[in-house]
Design a protein around this nucleic acid. Structure first.
Lengths: 245, 245
DNA sequence: CAGTGGTCTAGACCACTTC
DNA sequence: AAGTGGTCTAGACCACTGC
């Protein structure tokens, strides 16, 4: 590793530089989701630093849910295919407290041109190709979630209704296995609205019923936005859970 | 520090034991919010471990927002009186993206007996004394938030409307300065509902308007619940923000 | 048994604050 | 200059996994 004599430049600890290099390798796809990365000693040798320094870099990446350590086995690239990460981004829970298993019902998968608002959120140009998915999720026969999902076509080339209907599991897992896209982070904006006619039909509610509207933008490595989701939750017997600390 | 020969017992790393002792000191009020705790070397000497071990314990407490490090100055007990922690628990943001300064309007502060549901959430007995506060918060003259707040009387003895009206700042900061109670964590359950008559009056909305209902339980040291809050947000031009990772 | 991550130490030195 | 947190190292040993 080069000396720390950054002189006038801003000081950056070694482990931050290592972290950045690991991040670059993840983004470049050098190690795929679910795979082991080299051992701490191997990385230490590669970057010519001590094991403790590599360890600190990996520590931060694990707290960001980008890597997962398994004692005795190695350090792995996080994946939504993993059991424990299946519902990492789902904050909806039944009031009863019992676990909830949602069932997918895909309504459509169409092509469209990106309107200005979506283009801005996805950092693409207005009018570029998007894929629009409509989905309803049910629990015990009752429709709970109605979502519209928009994806940039280039990254998700070939995604169609047949593919979706053949898939049994979280969409984020499909993105990984079929489109080499791992979601790292998402931001949500939540509002209370009233059910419009489309929403009332999909969720089988009365017109004007209260609906939780969740607007989500999901990001892959490098803070790249690659999915917009507009979800409507029927919160009559479910709620959105959050922890503040 | 005692040896690690926990033999049959479950293994617990030294730094976890140190962390538990620091936590106990915080809970016991040995160091008050805003104060410095002893230096890492001092603590290392006290517990007869190396500085690195104390450091790792403190590391975890800082990521939990219980302690705050300041290079060159020391490590401090986190406080809601601190600028950067003022709005740690407020997730409501204006759609415009501009900063929002809410103005307090306290409506009432009454005594009542705890109904069963609240008693369970606060881990007290049904019928014990509670304080009930009603508050409206406005932004640019428009009522945005209507909250009912319930506190166990013993801990908040002497809290009345006059005290509240004299206070200018977050309630959590008042709890700290007047009742030695520091909030550490909170859980929220969020639903979309329609405005009832009380809510419509407080928030000046139409009856049946969509309202974001947020049920919050806040905890102090030792996972002790000490506040219940039932908030209604008018999300017509604000939204609740959340980040998933 | 070897290889992995996890803990702990002792010591050196850097960066920042205060006197 | 002294005291604090922050970084980095080298080495020892523990806990867990898999051959």
């Amino acid at each position: 590793m080069s000396a720390n004599l950054t002189s006038l430049a801003t000081f950056s600890p070694l482990y931050q530089q290592i972290k950045a290099m690991l991040l670059a390798s993840l983004q470049a796809g050098e190690w795929q989701p679910g795979e082991v990365i080299p051992s701490e000693f191997e990385l230490a040798a590669r970057y010519e630093v001590s094991q403790g320094t590599v360890r600190k870099a990996i520590d931060e990446l694990t707290t960001q849910n980008l890597l997962i350590r398994k004692q005795g086995k190695g350090t792995f690239v996080a994946t939504h295919l993993e059991e424990r990460h299946q519902f990492r981004f789902l904050r909806l829970a039944p009031d009863s407290g019992l676990p909830m298993a949602l069932k997918n019902h895909f309504l459509s998968c169409k092509k469209m041109k990106a309107p200005a608002i979506m283009a801005r959120a996805l950092k693409i140009k207005t009018g570029e190709n998007l894929i629009e998915i409509e989905r309803v999720q049910t629990f015990a026969g009752k429709a709970i979630v109605f979502e519209q999902i928009w994806l940039p076509s280039p990254r998700f080339k070939g995604l169609d209704l047949a593919t979706l209907e053949a898939w049994d599991g979280p969409l984020y897992a499909l993105y990984e296995s079929a489109f080499a896209t791992h979601m790292v982070r998402a931001t949500e904006k939540i509002k209370a609205v009233t059910s419009d006619s489309m929403c009332a039909q999909r969720l089988n509610t009365t017109l004007g019923a209260p609906i939780l509207l969740v607007e989500r933008v999901s990001y892959t490595y490098g803070n790249k936005p690659v999915e917009i989701r507009l979800a409507r939750y029927d919160t009559s017997s479910q709620h959105y859970e959050n922890t503040l600390s």
